[in-house]
Simulated scan of single mutants.
Amino acid sequence: MGAASGQRQDTALHTAVLTEPAGDSKAAEVQEKPLRPARSRVAIIVDDFGNGMRGTDEMFTLPVKITAAVMPFLSTTEKDARRAHEHGYDVLVHLPMEPRQGKPEWLGPGAVLTRMTDAEVRERVEAALDNVPYAVGINNHMGSKVTGDERVMGIVLAVCKERGLFFVDSHTNYRSVAGRMARELGLPPVENHIFLDDVHSAGHVMKQMRLVEQRAKSQRYCVTIGHVGIQGKETAAGIRSGIAAMKDSVDFVGISELVKEEWKWNTQLTLP
């Protein structure tokens, strides 16, 4: 399905190679050269940590690895990021970015806006990164207007590159320039494929998890996004049920592990 509900969200192998060295009397040796994992991989990103939102505890007790996308400058920003890190989860800065539509108050503090100067955009991005400990990357909160703006996205991605981070396009804009520009800068073009909770019920999330499984099996991997918040417990319950049905067929990984495997991304983080 791809990120079929992105716009709505913005408003709320190895191969075994037999080798026998020439002139060597030893028996032939089997050398295993890993090309790709045998099982498909799923990276579950959970957005909107950082404000003590409903479903936070339930997400942290899921039986698989998740990636915690934490909003900056909120009441539990640092606590949630540290808790995720202690669980062995990847942390992303869930950076508020200007949408085409939606209420400004939904953005939260520290938002990146298209009317800002280059210096102001850079200052906002760096401040958010400094405020969320252990972050290995950024993904956008809302942001359909910013992710379509080459000037602003160029600054966001430049900061990512300078710090050894990657950007995950939440895909709230089907005309996003983030992936193309990431490639041009030598960054991995990571994007969300499926929103889990565009409809707020555990049953819908379970249905979306089946789509995640299908996409992972057909394309080797799938990145999917859910949320804590008003319906966070329902989303967590749907994810938990989906995991139970999928655990024998896919591997659940952190987003950094997926990025390293899929795009051969190996960088040294420059942390504040």
Rank of each mutant, 00 (worst) to 15 (best):
N173I: 03
Q7N: 12
A245T: 15
N173C: 05
R215Y: 14
S201C: 02
L107H: 06
G203D: 13
T267D: 03
T267A: 09
T76V: 14
E20K: 15
V228H: 08
Q31G: 13
D130I: 06
A3E: 04
V112Y: 08
F166T: 05
V205H: 04
R215D: 14
F166P: 03
H87K: 15
K26V: 14
A22W: 11
M206T: 13
I155D: 02
V93T: 08
N140S: 07
C222I: 08
V190M: 08
R210W: 13
I194K: 09
L95A: 11
A28H: 14
A22V: 12
L211Q: 15
Q208R: 15
E257Q: 13
V199L: 13
V17I: 09
P104A: 09
A16T: 10
K26F: 15
M53S: 11
V121G: 04
A68M: 07
E213I: 01
L107I: 04
R82D: 12
G254P: 13
F195T: 10
V93S: 02
V177L: 04
P37T: 13
L18C: 11
E98L: 14
S218F: 06
R8M: 10
H14Q: 11
F252P: 00
V159G: 01
T19C: 05
Q231G: 01
A236S: 02
G238M: 14
T77Q: 08
I45R: 05
E98C: 13
L95N: 12
G102N: 09
A27M: 09
I155W: 01
V30A: 07
A68S: 12
G238Y: 15
N192H: 03
F73D: 00
E234G: 03
I243A: 07
K26R: 15
L92C: 02
D198M: 10
G226H: 06
T77M: 04
G203T: 11
M142D: 00
G108W: 02
P21M: 01
A84V: 03
I44P: 01
A43G: 00
